[in-house]
Write a protein that binds this DNA or RNA. Structure first.
Lengths: 203, 203
DNA sequence: CGGAGCCTTGAGAGCTGTCAATCCGGGTGG
DNA sequence: CCACCCGGATTGACAGCTCTCAAGGCTCCG
């Protein structure tokens, strides 16, 4: 059984790519890595920092589709696409590695175990997205927050301190105010406990 | 450049699977193909009819995550998963083909051009899901309907007659009433035209 | 101490969900 | 041919919830 790709398996994959085919990129908070409609140049890995994939509605509202943190990939789907479908914006000062699209495709075409790992990565991405659709489709704000917290802490059942309400609210299409109220509701219901160190514990 | 996998490429892929590894399945309206938590047995193709991937919130509300129509696959992501993440329910009487999970994985491991096609399929699925997240995250009902109609008719700019408001509303987490009102708003704004044959034209 | 940034809380408006009534088209049976 | 019924779509009325805007609170940091 092929399991979820671990970080070291990622490294094994990418280490086969010639150095000349990878580019180190430094971006500062607010910089655009690419914009919607750009021709995709490859897949990106976040080495440090954080990059958001966002879309802007024509009414000016911004929507976070994905939050890529250190160690994660983004723009995977653009491997097979003629244009980028989101804006990629640095949420913080970040360093990225870009792996050339053509080199990756060649690598995939010549190697098969790697192809399986890639597919498992894609499959996990699909499942995460379905989960996100489920969360965002939930009408009640407190249920939406509850599902999202469960999703975030599905292993540790605990949300680390230092979380930022504004970011969490963005991810599930709520305003920070509504998120705050919803969280208060969950705490009142004893479903979430605010711990003294600032973390959240799910029950 | 690898382009989107066409239906004939699908056929080429699946034709390499031994007949003994594929099962024909007939289901009637309302039948469950599999349930959340089941051990995945393979990937399914809808030959005729329609299958919905849904989740039930514990408050009893049903959410449509995906609508697989004739010619489409579903449960792709479960290839690399130990359990199904949705219920699959027949929306109409349908015939399905199930391709055995193990056979597919072997096929992928031994063939590389096919692996690329599979990945392109997954990549398209990911893009569709991101679009769905974008749509569902849109707060205004009429804007949500507008985005969804654009997504549905992104090639023909027209929605065929015979569409069912209830189903469309389900897909974007709206009530039929709210959908109806939103559609009326779009028609009043001349962004959508109801044609005499019952189809919708986008402008 | 003072400011900045974020979270929290409050009040009101706007929008969607709910429930109910009505309309419309297709199918059935007299 | 017509009355009737049935399912879905539409429309109306109202409650409930979230968004918006505004006003404190809190922590961190200079």
């Amino acid at each position: 059984m092929i399991s979820i790709m671990t970080e070291s398996e990622f490294d094994a994959l990418f280490s086969q790519i010639k150095p000349v085919e990878r580019v180190q990129i430094r971006v500062e908070t607010g910089d655009c890595v690419f914009r919607r409609g750009d021709s995709p140049e490859g897949i990106y890995r976040v080495e440090s920092g954080e990059v958001l994939l966002v879309r802007h509605s024509h009414s000016g509202q911004m929507l976070t589709l994905h939050r890529a943190q250190a160690g994660q990939l983004f723009a995977e789907a653009s491997l097979f696409s003629e244009s980028c479908h989101c804006d990629a914006v640095a949420e913080r000062d970040s360093t990225l590695t870009r792996f050339n699209k053509g080199a990756l495709l060649e690598l995939l075409a010549s190697s098969n175990a790697d192809a399986l790992r890639w597919m498992s990565y894609f499959a996990r991405e699909i499942q995460n997205l379905r989960k996100q659709v489920e969360i965002v489709s939930t009408r009640s704000a407190s249920e939406r927050v509850w599902l999202h917290l469960q999703h975030l802490g599905n292993t540790q059942h605990e949300i680390e301190p230092g979380f930022v309400i504004r970011k969490l609210a963005d991810e599930i299409a709520l305003t920070p105010e509504a998120y705050s109220r919803a969280l208060k509701t969950l705490v009142d219901q004893r479903r979430v406990i605010r711990q003294s160190n600032g973390s959240l514990k799910l029950s």
